[in-house]
């Protein structure tokens, strides 16, 4: 079962990480892989920390990704990237959207939001590769911050063995019909960005 690709998707409730996980799973499925995912509903919509997993491979039964077993940590928010960092393998890749979403004032009374330097240093202590993706910035340039996730998926696709056409098909099937064109554009922008910035 170690032949599976393990992806942990994290973010803040309302950022759309559930849909992103679905798109990854759909693309993997279209590419002929066996797929398992897990996500948490309910409270997650209320701005809380959100964690989901996507696994695909030849024969995947369980959606569970143990700590230290994720190949890729796909984080839509920086603080959440740190929170789930230890799910990543020692030689894993942290793909982090360059966005800070402040937790509530009450939470910040318990601990401050770590500064960028601390975040990057900590990420590097675990991950072999860290890529901070300017996804929010790219999405804003495209005119809609809601496209951030799709930009991140584009960047993610640079590191996965799933054909570009399958990604496009998965996006087309799963995003609201009116937004397909923009999402495909955002996906390609993310991919291009990652191709330009990734050393791997």
């Amino acid at each position: 079962m170690s032949t599976a690709t393990n992806i942990v998707v994290v973010g803040v409730g309302g950022q759309g990480s559930v849909l992103a996980g679905q798109i990854i799973a759909r693309a993997a499925m279209l590419a002929g892989f066996s797929v398992a995912t897990s996500e948490v509903h309910g409270m997650a919509q209320r701005g809380g920390s959100v964690f989901s997993t996507v696994r695909y491979g030849k024969a995947v039964l369980s959606p569970a990704v143990p700590e230290g077993a994720a190949d890729i940590l796909l984080a839509f928010e920086k603080l959440e990237a740190l929170r789930y960092l230890n799910y990543l393998r020692g030689d894993g890749l942290a793909l982090v959207n360059d966005q800070r979403i402040m937790p509530s004032i009450e939470s910040l009374k318990l601990a401050p939001y770590p500064d960028d330097k601390t975040i990057e240093e900590t990420l590097h202590r675990r991950a072999r590769d860290v890529l901070i993706v300017l996804a929010l910035g790219i999405a804003q340039k495209l005119g809609n911050p809601a496209l951030t996730n799709t930009v991140m998926l584009g960047a993610l696709s640079r590191f996965l063995d799933l054909p570009h056409t399958k990604w496009r098909q998965a996006i087309t099937e799963l995003v609201p019909p009116k937004t397909v064109e923009f999402n495909l554009l955002a996906f390609d922008e993310g991919l291009t960005w990652a191709q330009r910035h990734a050393q791997m």
Binding site: S49, S107, L110
Partner: peptide
């Protein structure tokens, strides 16, 4: 790896 103290993010 040891993480810095992180503010929690409960639902709200």
């Amino acid at each position: 790896v040891e993480l810095p103290p992180l503010p929690p993010r409960p639902p709200i």
